[in-house]
């Protein structure tokens, strides 16, 4: 067998070509049926610029790491993920439901409150909750949802990543299922902590991994738009990753993320002024 590979002289060689070739090889490796990733523009350059598709890759699995498991007080990772889902549902109004597999046993941190989710812009009519008994069932349900064309996105609240390689296998399976069907997957995990309590870096195979935690809001005391500290820890083919977390706010009425910065200290207000003093309307619907 004497096959010679040639690159024709008029093909300019360069980084773009290499990128395209890699993409091609990647697709060949996976066989047919792979849906090429499309990006969901997040509307915030701080996030979009780092992502290769110019936004969150759809039809892939993303991991959002919240606070450590012991810290149930911090709902930031939930908030950020809900905002991502809300954005996705708005971008694809005609497509199917979002399947959410919550961790039912974790009642210390409360349960999902749909009115709050709607307040963040989520279309609750397309949200289906799946109660499971344990992590294995959650992974199973997630994989089923990820392999079903017609589901818009699927999310599971999972345990912290274990040290062994089992999670890698699982994640790879989930990723393949998502690529075949075009369903976007989200894994919501607590951050893994080392014995000393510091955040440990994890190495699971996902399209992108985000670390999200609570952040003091520099907005006014009556500005209800939530602010989180968001770090894009890794992303496949990332353009450039920030080393420091950014403070990202979610503007639910306009459905977009934006980056916030500290205000000059002088402008800070007394935080203890009531918002609607003397507002004693009764009978408001909760």
């Amino acid at each position: 067998m004497n096959i010679k590979y040639r690159i024709s002289p008029d093909t300019p060689a360069g980084p773009t070509d290499m990128g395209a070739l890699r993409e091609l090889v990647r697709r060949m490796e996976r066989g047919d049926g792979t849906v090429p990733a499309r990006g969901l523009v997040l509307g915030c350059p701080a996030l979009d610029d780092a992502l290769p598709e110019g936004g969150l890759a759809l039809g892939r699995v993303h991991e959002v790491l919240g606070p450590a498991r012991s810290d149930v007080r911090d709902a930031a990772a939930f908030g950020f993920t809900i905002a991502l889902l809300a954005l996705l549902m708005k971008a694809r109004p005609q497509e199917g439901p979002v399947i959410w597999c919550p961790r039912s046993a974790n009642l210390l941190g409360g349960t999902l409150y749909i009115r709050g989710l709607v307040g963040l812009g989520l279309d609750a009519d397309r949200l289906i909750l799946v109660e499971t008994r344990d992590e294995a069932e959650r992974v199973w349900a997630l994989e089923e949802a990820l392999s079903t064309k017609g589901v818009l996105a699927a999310l599971a609240e999972l345990d912290p990543v274990r040290a062994d390689r089992r999670d890698n296998k699982t994640n790879r399976r989930l990723q393949l299922a998502a690529e075949r069907s075009g369903v976007t997957g989200f894994l919501l995990r607590p951050r893994m902590t080392t014995a000393s309590g510091a955040a440990a870096r994890t190495t699971t195979l996902v399209e992108s991994r985000w670390q999200v935690s609570a952040a003091p809001s520099p907005l006014g005391p009556h500005d209800a738009r939530p602010v989180w500290s968001v770090l894009l820890e890794r992303a496949k083919r990332a353009r450039r990753l920030a080393s420091e977390p950014r403070r990202i706010a979610w503007d639910a009425p306009h459905m977009s993320f934006f980056e916030v910065f500290d205000r000059p200290a002088a402008a800070a207000q007394d935080p203890l002024v009531p918002e609607t003093r003397g507002d004693r309307r009764y009978g408001r619907v909760a």
């Binding site: 199917g96 609750a124 289906i128 069932e137 064309k149 017609g150």
Partner: peptide
């Protein structure tokens, strides 16, 4: 696609139990 989603919900319900797959319904309460 609707049919596929419906089949998925049936599979989840059958494995996880009849009340495990649900939606949330708004109730007018203070």
């Amino acid at each position: 696609d609707d049919e596929a989603v419906s089949t998925l919900l049936d599979r989840l319900t059958n494995r996880l139990g009849p009340t495990s797959v649900h939606r949330s319904l708004p109730v007018e309460s203070h």
